[in-house]
């Protein structure tokens, strides 16, 4: 009873909601990118690796320049670069997408852990004071939901990207190309759509978003970097894309759900719930499995999913 009361109290609810939103932002960004590549027929399992590399590079640059913009920018650039490498492997060289994706993932874990030690040794620097929250006037005063309107600037961008991605995919020529290339690349090619270019562009967009997601995690959300800090968020994003049936507009629900459970892990500890910490830490992952199990049964994949395209 005591616990319930403390959970429902205004300050606690505000923290929970704010934390939920913050936790869901990297997932939203990564999942938007992944939904675009997958809609174009490419599975990028390297998402996690790209996020990690983005997070690391952004952190190092932000720490040294003490500048949010350069941090985010370099994170994006790093994500883009890795994604381009991935794109070159799977689109041009037609490497098995699972092999390349797993390779990029393990590479991401290894290289960031390696470089972290080379750069910082046994130190764990914290990038303080680089970023701040942007409160929206008036809205950030509303009780209970005020934390929604007091977020990092990147969070607003991420939320705005959801309808933008939907619009891109369903209302623009480029989106038409993506959908055609993922469903029937032979037809798209026959009608003069450049399959390679379209897929490269989706992979690049995805790299930018994955890099931004990583950068948000390391410099906006946490202000530090640790080994493998994405903790499966890349894979969760891939799961959420399936959950959303490859429609960007539905990504928010899945990401929000992850955010709820993620912020609950710290929220319930603060609220003094007597459950071992480890069980709370499991919650987001269990939630993803449960939700996939309920909503993602026998989903229909894009027809050319995971297949490299080759003429003749």
């Amino acid at each position: 009873m005591e616990i319930l009361r403390s959970i429902l109290s205004e300050p606690f609810f505000v923290i929970l909601l704010g934390g939920t939103l913050t936790a869901s932002i990297p997932i939203i960004l990564a999942a938007i990118g992944e939904s675009l590549v997958e809609k174009g027929g490419v599975l990028n399992l390297g998402l996690e690796g790209e996020m990690l590399i983005g997070a690391f590079v952004a952190f190092v640059i932000a720490l040294n320049t003490r500048n949010l913009f350069w941090g985010l920018f370099s994170g994006i650039a790093a994500g883009l670069l890795v994604a381009l490498a991935f794109g070159y492997l799977v689109i041009y060289l037609k490497v098995n997408q699972i092999v390349a994706g797993l390779g990029i993932w393990i590479f991401g874990i290894g290289i960031t852990s390696l470089l972290f030690r080379v750069f910082f040794g046994r130190r764990f620097p914290i990038a303080r004071g680089i970023t701040s929250k942007t409160a929206i006037p008036y809205l950030s005063q509303i009780p209970y939901i005020r934390s929604v309107f007091n977020q990092h600037i990147v969070a607003y961008v991420a939320l705005a990207l959801i309808p933008l991605a939907w619009w891109l995919l369903y209302k623009t020529n480029f989106g038409l190309h993506i959908r055609a290339v993922g469903e029937n690349p032979v037809a798209a090619d026959a009608h003069g759509v450049n399959v390679y270019r379209t897929r490269y562009l989706t992979v690049m967009l995805e790299g930018i978003l994955a890099g931004l997601a990583g950068a948000f995690l390391s410099i906006c959300d946490l202000s530090f970097f640790v080994d493998n800090m994405t903790l499966g968020r890349g894979f969760i994003a891939i799961g959420i894309v399936m959950l959303a049936n490859w429609n960007p507009s539905r990504i928010f629900y899945g990401a929000f759900l992850f955010g709820v459970f993620y912020s609950l892990t710290s929220g319930l500890q603060i609220a003094g719930v007597n459950v071992p910490r480890e069980f709370l830490l499991m919650l987001p992952y269990v939630a993803v499995i449960v939700v996939l199990c309920i909503f993602a049964r026998n989903t229909r994949l894009p027809a050319a999913f995971c297949l490299p395209y080759e003429r003749e």
Partner: peptide
């Protein structure tokens, strides 16, 4: 083997590559 994309509408198929 028809080169139409079944998940797209007639309009979208016609626009594909021409727009």
């Amino acid at each position: 083997h028809l080169t139409l994309v079944p998940t797209l509408s007639v309009r979208e198929n016609i626009l594909l590559g021409t727009n």
